[in-house]
Design a protein around this nucleic acid. Sequence first.
DNA 1: GACCCGTGGGG
DNA 2: TCCCCAAGGGT
Length: 327
Amino acid sequence: MPGEEPTDPYRVWLSEIMLQQTTVAAVKPYFEAFTVRWPSVDALAAASEEDVMAAWAGLGYYSRARNLIACARLVAERCGFPDTEEGLRDLPGIGAYTAAAIAAIAFGRRAVVVDANVERVVSRLFAITEPLPASRPTIRERADQITPEHRSGDFAQAMMDLGSSICTTRAPKCLLCPLSGDCAARKTGDPARFPLKLAKKPVPERTGRAYWIEREGPAGRDVWLVQRPAKAMLGGMRALPDDGWSAQSDGSCMPPIAGNWTELGAVRHGFTHAKLTLTVVRYEGDRAPDGGEWWPVERLDEAGLPTLFAKAATLALAADASQDFAA
DNA sequence: GACCCGTGGGG
DNA sequence: TCCCCAAGGGT
């Protein structure tokens, strides 16, 4: 990966977007699927938004997928990626980190690449006692000082590898670390204390309901799916209808149509800033709601449901199965 | 700067 | 089980 073979800006960009706040293991199958299905930025630019969102389902942070499409279309229109940090920085979904990473790795520019790994390594190397996030400017300055003029992309990848495999958040493997002799945090005797961080706010508990509405359609069983509004949580994704729960407030418990509803159970799901208990209820009746679509239950895995609603669907289908068994 | 946005794995 | 957190960006 580092150095030798020419690095395709499209693949570098795609992998960097996918890797934002996401582990390599989680990204791998998605990266493979995307690059097979859309081998170039032009191919991705020509894809439908619906297909890309569905292909992203399960990876999380869905605004990345919306920005991915917008970015691909801009780049295709302009006949290629800009080859400077500043040019890249102006594209949707590309911030300071990603612009620096692409400029360095794909275009061989000198750039100071600072992600959470580099923050940790640098904080320890220099034993920076100011807590994050206030220490960011200092960390960036220090990172700039140790970034070489040439092959800064390889340097960045080496720093990130060091941070993810040796200079880990907990129990850093200092005995294996090539920097241990220079590490100020190691000299303090407690390197894992770095980087210092401000205490976080507690995560609220929320409750909500999801509605399972089934019919016997012309080609088999269908379930009613809706598309979530673009900007909110899980924005733009297909989902089961729900009662309007959010990270800020509980749902209303109001079903989308009147009728008999049967509680099937509940699923738990943790988001970054809220924990949710989602009760799944099934409609017993013959009316159809509006503002959505019937989706074949047999092909539900192709609907691109975010993990929360995939869990809810699994619960509903298991309840169906046990009911069929009882009958 | 603060807050919003998912998910899966490790300890 | 629970908590922490990861190759961040947008507002």
